[in-house]
Amino acid sequence: MPSPRPPVSSITLDAGSFAVIHQENADLQRPPASLTKLMIAYAAYEQVASGAAAWEMPVTVAAEDVHAVADDETRMGLVPGETVTLGRLLQGMLVVSGNDAALVLARHLHGSQAAYLQHMNALARRLGLGSTWFASVSGITTPRHVSSARDMAVLAGRLLADHPQVLAITAQPAFAHGTFSRSNQNALLADEGVDGLKTGYTRAAGFCLAATARRPIAGHAQPVRLITVVLGSEDREARDARVRRHLASGFAALAGDTVAEA
Score class of each variant (00 low, 15 high):
3 S>N: 03
3 S>T: 10
4 P>C: 07
4 P>D: 05
5 R>F: 03
6 P>Q: 10
9 S>R: 01
14 D>P: 04
17 S>M: 12
17 S>C: 11
20 V>R: 13
20 V>H: 04
20 V>A: 07
25 N>I: 10
27 D>V: 08
31 P>H: 03
37 K>P: 02
39 M>I: 03
39 M>L: 08
42 Y>W: 14
47 Q>G: 06
51 G>R: 04
53 A>T: 02
54 A>S: 10
55 W>P: 04
58 P>W: 03
59 V>T: 06
61 V>P: 00
61 V>I: 15
62 A>V: 09
65 D>V: 08
67 H>N: 08
67 H>R: 08
70 A>E: 14
70 A>H: 10
71 D>Y: 11
71 D>H: 10
78 L>Y: 00
81 G>F: 08
81 G>N: 03
88 R>Q: 11
89 L>F: 04
89 L>N: 01
90 L>R: 00
97 S>L: 07
97 S>Q: 04
104 V>N: 00
105 L>F: 03
105 L>C: 05
107 R>H: 15
108 H>K: 12
109 L>H: 10
112 S>Q: 13
121 N>H: 05
121 N>I: 06
121 N>W: 04
124 A>I: 06
126 R>I: 01
127 L>H: 07
128 G>A: 09
129 L>A: 10
129 L>N: 06
131 S>D: 15
133 W>Q: 14
135 A>R: 09
138 S>I: 05
140 I>V: 13
142 T>P: 03
142 T>I: 01
143 P>D: 13
143 P>S: 12
143 P>K: 14
145 H>T: 10
157 G>R: 04
159 L>P: 04
160 L>I: 09
160 L>S: 07
162 D>K: 09
162 D>N: 12
164 P>W: 00
167 L>F: 10
167 L>V: 15
171 A>R: 15
174 A>L: 10
174 A>T: 07
174 A>M: 08
176 A>T: 12
177 H>A: 12
182 R>Y: 02
182 R>E: 14
183 S>Q: 12
185 Q>Y: 00
185 Q>P: 00
186 N>G: 07
186 N>A: 09
188 L>H: 02
190 A>Y: 02
190 A>L: 06
190 A>N: 04
196 G>R: 07
196 G>A: 06
197 L>W: 03
199 T>M: 04
202 T>Q: 00
207 F>K: 03
207 F>W: 15
207 F>S: 11
208 C>Y: 00
208 C>I: 11
210 A>H: 06
213 A>L: 08
214 R>H: 06
215 R>L: 14
218 A>D: 11
218 A>P: 00
219 G>I: 06
220 H>I: 01
223 P>A: 14
224 V>L: 14
225 R>Y: 05
225 R>H: 07
228 T>E: 03
230 V>Q: 06
234 E>V: 15
235 D>N: 15
237 E>C: 01
238 A>G: 11
240 D>A: 05
241 A>K: 09
242 R>D: 05
243 V>S: 07
244 R>F: 01
254 L>S: 09
